[in-house]
Design a protein around this nucleic acid. Structure first.
Lengths: 228, 228
DNA sequence: GAGGCTATTTATAAGAC
DNA sequence: TGTCTTATAAATAGCCT
């Protein structure tokens, strides 16, 4: 995290890894400590390492034991009193996860279509592969793309100075404006998808779309009409 | 830890404490994650909070279970596992959804990168937008793509007859490896960005990759440089 | 290797909505 | 209350001894 942005992957160099481990273990334990103290919660951390025969445990072994026991007996614990809240909470969590899942699936689909479109544009796929995609949705994607391109072109025409800080600054992919690097968590930013930074290039869409349309309609799609 | 040096003591203000807890819990788990990944060690963290009936556990319940089992073997033997009830079931459901979510997020990321790549090839994005992507992962995607392309080309050269046996199990969609859909060549280029004149629609991957690499290393002087 | 030392990256307490 | 943003404290990778 310094002098070089860390890459979240196994450190192959032995000594380097060990050094990192020691530093990070220390930091981690400090963090657990802070969390419990500041927020008054119970927590424990257990770290096995090839460097120490005895696993690092925090807080004291007893403390950890207590936490662990509770963890193990969770089901029996106070199922009674908290059951209702618990269940509602859990249900809520499930719903939340499912919602996110749905969003991601939708997003995934969109990306697939977009991807396919770009492949066509790059000449690496042809509309013959179109059965791979869903026509209706592809239509949506294309319309969206066209709208974006047109808007972009208009913007360029109106403002001859091709500034890079255009309105679509938040750009295509790679969402996290402040996201941590490998946090992974930043992957699926919802809603940041509009606006491709056409960034000063004239896209070859005429070719693509023409090609696409003709072939598509030949294939029996009904959706090509509103593209123009 | 910011705007004010933190004092290691219980935060009396309720909402403040809760906010802090949420942030710190997230950070802590990230740290555990990093530690295990970077240093290849086993570790787990368990956090109880009054805010959530279900304790936060890292890594996945299974992972934690494994660590815990070992830990218990080292300490004492108490067989108190009994988790067959509604709650366990529900939690399992949550986990399942979360796992799927994680997979989808990963997949999403991959698609985003792939998409970006194709955008570059289509001339709709330039490597100047590369900071939007994660270098290391992009590298993976590109290598994978290259492998697939090469495999595909070899397959086609070797066997004009459709002898389907190649290694590309997932078979990317890229039918005409050398055939350009049409002349094209009309793609103009504006904008000061060092343009990529992909020229016609011939699959420009060699150009793309070369250009990509050089431009990247050139552009990444500031901080990046992880690519090589 | 084990500390000590920065230059940077991360984590986050406060604010702003 | 939750989220997003910002300013600042904390953690730590790469060096050096």
């Amino acid at each position: 995290m310094t002098r070089k942005k860390v890459t979240l992957a196994f450190i192959t160099n032995d000594s380097e890894r060990k050094a990192s481990f020691k530093k990070r273990k220390k930091g981690l334990i400090k963090k657990v400590n802070e969390l419990t103290t500041l927020c008054g919660v119970e927590a424990c951390a257990i770290i096995y390492s090839p460097y120490e025969p005895v696993p690092e445990v925090w807080p004291s072994r007893q403390g950890a034991e207590g936490v662990l026991t509770r963890f193990r007996e969770l089901s029996e614990m106070d199922q009674t009193r908290k059951m209702v809240n618990q269940e509602a909470f859990t249900r809520q969590r499930i719903k939340k996860a499912q919602d996110q899942l749905r969003r991601l699936q939708k997003e995934n689909k969109r990306k697939e279509l977009e991807n396919f479109m770009y492949q066509c544009m790059a000449g690496m796929a042809s509309v013959n592969d179109f059965n791979l995609c869903d026509a209706a949705e592809m239509n949506l994607v294309m319309n969206q793309t066209m709208r974006e391109i047109n808007a972009r072109m208009e913007a360029i025409q109106k403002a001859p100075a091709p500034h890079h800080e255009d309105t679509a600054a938040h750009d295509v992919m790679m969402p996290p404006p402040t996201g941590s690097p490998s946090t992974g968590g930043s992957i699926a930013q919802i809603g940041g998808v509009d606006g491709w930074d056409v960034g000063g290039m004239v896209p070859p869409y005429p070719y693509f779309f023409n090609n696409f349309n003709s072939s598509t309609s030949a294939a029996g799609t009904t959706s090509g009409s509103d593209i123009n």
